[in-house]
Design a protein around this nucleic acid. Sequence first.
DNA 1: TCAGTATACGACCATTTCTGTCGGGATTTC
DNA 2: GAAATCCCGACAGAAATGGTCGTATACTGA
Lengths: 152, 152
Amino acid sequence: MLKLTKKADYGLMALKYLAEHPETPALSAKDVADAYGIPAQLLAKILQLLTRNGLLRSHAGMNGGYALARDARTISAYEVIHAIDGPFFITSCTKGAKSCELTPSCTIKEPLARVNDTIAGVLKSISIQDLTEHEQPAARAREAHGLVALTL
Amino acid sequence: MLKLTKKADYGLMALKYLAEHPETPALSAKDVADAYGIPAQLLAKILQLLTRNGLLRSHAGMNGGYALARDARTISAYEVIHAIDGPFFITSCTKGAKSCELTPSCTIKEPLARVNDTIAGVLKSISIQDLTEHEQPAARAREAHGLVALTL
DNA sequence: TCAGTATACGACCATTTCTGTCGGGATTTC
DNA sequence: GAAATCCCGACAGAAATGGTCGTATACTGA
Ligand code: FES
Ligand code: FES
């Protein structure tokens, strides 16, 4: 539980890889898949999703492939996960229009929704750029975003 | 993704319910299940799990049932989830002894592990007691725990 | 001591979700 | 036009999840 799907994981890895190779105009799905040893066709579908959601630019034909649509600093892990796995709720009951069947009796969803928001916030505060900085990312990120105050 | 399992959800609901009825010495699995309309046998298994992990006290026989093993304030959502769904990692690769097959090439797991820790921290900072205070929990919790500093 | 109420627990099945594959089609480059 | 590449829906296999059943065990109270 509370686990990233493999697809989301792959997606993050791919974006990270692209961010690390800014010199090349585009990398094919196969290139990235080979680099990490992940199923090429599966990754292809994931990259297509990311393209559809405006995180990547694609280009068909020889020497085609994918490139980041925006600066790595402006793409958050949240966006990636959201693009791949869809809207995300920690609880089964969305608390919105279509509330859970148990709603009347259950008051648990409300505090949990706050946890959900907090986690989303954390994910939003992490950029692809952050993923590429393996040396001392803690310090760098803290600089970049400041301390995030959790108002539970 | 990043979703609580129903079992964990049920577990939290049950603990919350028990916390709200401190006057009764024990409530049976059926009592709680009926209160929320969740499958009694399933809840029973969950409560057994929580008992095994020391979060609940069980008592067989008439007027038996379950009661919190400790004060609601000292039981965290993290413990509950952990007891029910087992150790929890946001990524597939545990970064510990048995690392992922992709490890050599993939540097993504390390920053993600930090996210994992952050989420775990949030969950640890939430007690069953917090879940029972539906009025203004934001303010109360902030008082109780202070601001949590995220050192991403 | 016996009947009734409850927990304990393993086996099992049904459903859903996730992962990965295939095949045909559309675009771009050379 | 041929090769490389993206696009995308359908689908099969695998795994996780949700839920049920049967039985054994423990406690209570009459
Ligand atoms: S589980 Fe749906 S409202 Fe609580
Ligand atoms: S996915 Fe396993 S090390 Fe990154």
